[in-house]
Nucleic acid binder design. Structure first.
Length: 325
DNA sequence: AACGTGCACAACCGCAGTAAA
DNA sequence: GTTTACTGCGGTTGTGCACGT
């Protein structure tokens, strides 16, 4: 059975020999890979282009970091996986010199087992049911009641699991007077945290970040659209207000985002930033996300240094993000 | 020594997205 | 609008090695 991608050719399969590696390296260093489908022919290899590409990316590339994963890398993988799930390529982008394949293998062979041994579900990072205590926090909506686990990142990217906040009842519709919810970690109480109350907290109209910096708005709105692919905080979703209240939220339209961003940029021209490094970092993130709604370059380490609120862990669509600077 | 088992890692397969024809 | 080729990704399988019996 040959490869579909190169059924016309007779291709070799299986492990690469040193001679083949040498041919591929020589060809790519001299000519670049160009079109991968043409590489085998040009390099004199009896392989399909796909196989060449994989061999180069996963093994021969000069910028690859070899050797076992460090504890720090492991923690990054766990943290990012918690947010992105099995998006190995995205996770690998946060680990210079590591490939998606490498990360995936490391996850499946090591981290998965480690999490399981700690009683954590590798998919959700929640405690496994056999390890859960009985009185979990519950959120009641008009249509369903969901089991909830709150998790946050602290400043050092360590994860904390808050298993047992008091029972919480949350109406799905916009509450006329937002109910306070327990804030299990100091991060949630930071007044700079996003998801602020609307101008009129009694309004039944959903709102989107009526104030706050353009950076915040950009990051939040970008995240809400990029990380989920849909409006993860769409109608029926609620957000955590600055005062710890649950409030309705809708994702702003692109036009709204742009308009708001321009307004805020005008305001911020007067603000002196004490921490230029932080600002540079933020600018970089914004530019990247403005130019492309791709999460590939988003620095999750940066994101994770702030506060984070998450509800249902099973889907990216259900994440709520917040942080402070 | 022979065999079985588990593990880590390399490679493959199939699918989806995208751009060009 | 459709087809085709290409690329990238995630899941899965294959391979070689170490270790225990």
């Amino acid at each position: 059975m040959g490869h579909r991608c190169c059924s016309k050719q007779k291709v070799k399969r299986g492990l690469w020999s040193p001679e083949e590696d040498e041919k591929l390296i020589k060809h790519i260093t001299e000519h670049g890979h160009g079109s991968w489908s043409s590489v085998p022919k040009l390099a004199g290899l009896q392989r399909c282009g796909k196989s060449c590409r994989l061999r180069w990316i996963n093994y021969l590339r000069p910028d690859l970091k070899r050797g076992s994963f460090t504890a720090e890398e492991e923690q990054i993988i766990i943290d990012v996986h918690r947010i992105l799930g099995n998006r190995w390529a995205q996770i690998a982008k946060h680990l210079p010199g590591r490939t998606d394949n490498e990360v995936k293998n490391f996850w499946n062979s090591c981290i998965k087992k480690k999490l399981l041994s700690q009683g954590l579900d590798p998919k959700t990072h929640n405690l496994l049911s056999s390890h859960k205590r009985p009185n979990r926090v519950h959120v009641t909506s008009s249509s369903q009641m969901q089991e909830q686990t709150f998790s946050v990142f602290n400043g050092s990217s360590q994860l904390m699991e808050i298993i047992n906040p008091p029972l919480l009842t949350l109406p799905a519709a916009a509450p006329s007077s937002p109910l306070p919810i327990p804030i299990p970690n100091s991060h949630y109480q930071n007044p700079n945290v996003l998801w602020p109350a609307g101008n009129d907290p009694n309004s039944n109209e959903s709102t989107f970040f009526p104030y706050g910096s353009s950076m915040e708005n950009t990051l939040i709105s970008s995240l809400s659209s990029t990380l989920s692919g849909v409006n993860m905080l769409d109608e029926g979703h609620c957000i955590l207000g600055a005062n710890g209240a649950i409030e309705p939220y809708r994702v702003p339209s692109m036009e709204e985002q742009l308009q708001l961003q321009l307004q805020q940029q005008e305001k911020e021209k007067t603000i002196v930033c004490d921490n230029q490094m932080v600002m540079d970092k933020i600018d970089g993130e914004i530019q990247e996300m403005d130019s492309s709604f791709d999460t590939s370059n988003f620095d999750l380490g940066f994101l994770m240094s702030g506060a984070m609120c998450r509800d249902n862990l099973n889907s990216m669509d259900d994440y709520n993000f917040a942080w402070n600077f």
